[in-house]
Design a protein around this nucleic acid. Structure first.
Lengths: 130, 130
DNA sequence: CTTAAATATACCTTGACACGTATATGCTCA
DNA sequence: TGAGCATATACGTGTCAAGGTATATTTAAG
């Protein structure tokens, strides 16, 4: 669990992060809104905190969690190397966005990936390793 | 393995994607450059293809793989909701936003998300229903 | 000090997935 | 047709992370 990508691979963690976009929340509030058990919320928050995605402050017996920008930038930086590439394909992209515009803001997102049949072209290339 | 985030959580798969940024590559070329065994490369490519990250064409006995833009855009779309936490930081990002994200370009205006906040409010939580 | 609430942690079980080895499939050329 | 190369798949194995239940810790209030 070293990389930020593994952190955001978990649907419940993404749901927590999305929830925190609006404002900081206590563990109990997260638990209620996302219908997760309290230990599950706490454990995910611990992972998110250690990865730098969130930070917390104490309010009586509660802990208020809010977002921190660092790791998001890291993801964005990785994504940057592909941006030039997909910007050139905006047209073909429109069709693609059509079928995946539904974001997964809560867990249990099930979606069948489109089985793209590969374009078959017989190039009759010269022998492999003469 | 439903979401694009789980796909890119794997380091070897990210390495393959990065390798394909420069140009399309055959399985053998990927295998040599990344020092992975051939079945491992094939299996990761299968996952990437089914998720729409890459596509392949046949060239004699070889398969040439290249990137496809869709899923990257999906990651980018998810990331968009967090952009206000580091608004105007990466130049490449700004270039990107300037081109296609002009609809909510007027974000920012929120105070910088520095951890300086210290939301210390002693609300003296009245509590439990007796 | 005792009780109740909010949150964190420990332990256990389970399932997913990444890898390696071996093998199958497909393609080209002699 | 057979040999050889490139790629895909099958199967067995080990690791690791996520969830559940139970319990510990901290804090407020009476």
């Amino acid at each position: 669990m070293e990389s930020v990508f593994e952190i955001i691979a978990e649907p419940n963690r993404r749901a927590i992060l999305t929830l925190l976009v609006s404002s900081e929340q206590s563990v109990g509030e997260i638990e209620r809104q996302l219908r997760m058990t309290q230990p599950t919320v706490s454990k995910h928050l611990r992972v998110l905190r250690e990865a730098g995605f969130v930070e917390s402050t104490v309010d009586a017996q509660r802990r208020l969690y809010r977002l921190k920008p660092g790791p998001f930038q890291e993801v964005d930086a990785w994504l940057a190397q592909f941006r030039r590439f997909w910007s050139a394909h905006v047209d073909a992209l429109e069709r693609h966005l059509d079928r995946m515009d539904r974001m997964d803001q809560d867990r249990e997102n099930e979606s069948t990936p489109t089985k793209r049949k590969t374009t078959k072209e017989k190039t009759t290339r010269p022998k492999p390793r003469a």
